[in-house]
Structure formats: C-alpha cells, structure tokens
C-alpha cells in the first residue's frame, strides 16, 4: 500500500479527532452536542490565513492569536448556547441553540472571507523524505499535535483539581453542585477548552486541508461521527473515532474508486454503529436532562 495514504489517513484522523475531542470536552459537563464545533475549526484556519497569509506575519503570532480568539469564541458560544438552553425546558433546545450559533458563525466567516478557501503557508515547509516517499512536515505536525493535545487533556482530567471537577460534573452535575463545585464555571471552562483544542487543529491543518470559510457544518458532522463512534464523552474514544473516520475518508475511496467512495464510508459507519451501539470506547449515553 502507498505509505502516502497511511499518512493522509493519520492526519485527517488527527484533525477529526481534535474536533471530536472539542465536542467531547463540551459534552461531558453539559450533555450538549455542539453543532457549532466545526466553526471553531474554521476559526483556527481563518486566523492562520489572516495572520500568516494576508498579513505575512509569523506563525508564533498566529498561534497566540488563535489561542486568544478561540478562548473568546468559547466564551461567546457558552453564552449564546447555555443561556437559551437553561431558560428552555425543551429536551431539544440544545439542538436549535447550537445550530443557530453555527448559522451565525458560518455566515460571519463567509462574509469576512468571500474568497472561500483559507489556506496559509505551512508552519514547517517542505517534506520529510524517506527513500522515495515524501511526507509534508505539516501533516506530521497535525498528527503529533493531535496526540500531544489528547494526552495533555487526559492528564488534565486525571491530575488537576479542575479536571476532577469536570469529571464530577459530567458524572452528576446536581451532586457536583451540592459538593461545592462551581458547575457554571466548569461549563464555561469546558467551552473555552473545547474551542481552543478544535481551533488549534484548524490552524495547524489549514495549510494542508481544504477548509472553506462556510464549511463549518461539514467538519461538525465529521467530528460528531468521530465522537459518537468513539463513544461520546471519552477522550481516547475521540482519538480512535477520529482515526477511523479519517481512515475511511482516505482509504475507502482509494480502494473502491472515486465516485462510489462515500457510499462505502457511510455504509461502514452504519455497520460500526449497529455492531457497537454504544460506541467503541463508550458507556451508555443518557438523554440530555
């Protein structure tokens, strides 16, 4: 098999995994699947495009700017989503709230960047050459970033007091509140972390991914699929789910030939879900409130 395909599967997988991780981070304390998550991915790409592409700035500035912008986006998303959800008694309010935020952000990006694709120059240009195989450094960077961020978040959950608070809140938010855990602040923090994680993925993937300014929903769907396959609410599941979706995306069209590719991808998805109705690394998922 062409090693290029393996690498492609891995870096697609890495990017999807980080979108899925962002969704998982937000899902854990809130039981909300954020359908605006793909917009954070686009935000990262947009900042990179703006700083590195249009302003010819350095990547260091782009990374810092992404961190700031993503944190801000997290706060904004938390306000725009959680306030209506808390006020509404409906079981499905989250769906409309997150879709509405997705619509708003999507059109803001589309209006700001009417050119369409957001692709800045690579952070590490050039290729890694092993014999006859050439692998873009940027792709390797995405893979490494995905693994590092995943491990870091896992350690954060296990080792820090805030991580314990997040886990307690995700297990039983009412009881967590009674134990003195500031649940609302934990939720705000989760939105910020979720947004930052996904935006970083968008920033790093932008030079090698085709990220369209109005394409957030597509990435949301990929991330959602990855998160659910992995079992919503588990970071390692997000990584596994991301890799599976990435592999299917890259491998299946290659094996079965172009036009029918997606057909098998979605067929495989259904098969996985039918065989593992709770996700691969999952526990049972309760309905949101």
């Amino acid at each position: 098999m062409d090693p290029q395909i393996v690498v492609d599967a891995l870096y697609y997988g890495g990017a999807y995994a980080l979108i899925a991780l962002g969704m998982t981070v937000i899902y854990q304390p809130t039981r909300i699947v954020n359908f605006a998550q793909g917009e954070a991915f686009v935000l990262g790409a947009a900042v990179g495009f703006q700083v590195v592409g249009l302003w010819q700035g350095s990547w260091a500035v782009a990374i810092l700017a992404t961190l700031g912008a993503a944190a801000l986006l997290g706060v904004v998303m938390e306000r725009l989503i959680m306030v209506p959800v808390r006020r509404s008694g409906s079981k499905y309010a989250w769906l409309v709230a997150t879709l509405a935020v997705a619509l708003i952000l999507e059109s803001v990006f589309a209006l700001t960047y009417p050119e369409g694709y957001l692709s800045p120059a690579a952070l590490i240009p050039g290729d890694l050459v092993i014999g006859s195989v050439m692998i873009a450094w940027q792709k390797i960077l995405v893979i490494v970033a995905a693994v590092v961020i995943m491990l870091a978040y896992d350690q954060f959950l296990r080792r820090t007091p805030y991580g314990r608070a997040v886990r307690a809140t995700s297990f039983a938010s009412g009881t967590a509140l009674l134990m003195g855990i500031p649940v609302k602040r934990v939720i705000l923090l989760s939105f910020v972390i979720g947004s930052v994680v996904t935006s970083l993925a968008g920033l790093l993937a932008a030079p090698v991914f085709y990220i369209s300014a109005a394409g957030g929903l597509l990435f949301t769907i990929k991330g959602f699929i990855a998160a659910v396959i992995g079992g919503v609410g588990s970071p390692s599941g997000a990584l596994l789910g991301g890799l599976i979706v990435g592999t299917l995306d890259v491998l299946v069209p290659h094996v079965f030939g172009g036009s029918n590719g997606n057909f098998y991808v979605f067929g495989a998805l259904v098969l996985i879900l039918v065989l593992f109705p709770r996700g691969l690394v999952g526990r049972a998922v309760a309905a949101s409130r």
Partner: peptide
C-alpha cells in the same frame, strides 16, 4: 448574504423570548 446571519440571530432570540 446577510440572510443566514439574520435567521440565526432571530432563532437565538426566539429561543430566549419564547423558550418553550
């Protein structure tokens, strides 16, 4: 082009004003 933006904003507003 502002249609989607307005629609999204109206949606959120409706959700706030008539939450049920």
């Amino acid at each position: 082009p502002y249609r989607v933006l307005i629609l999204g904003a109206v949606l959120l507003l409706t959700l706030l004003l008539v939450p049920r």
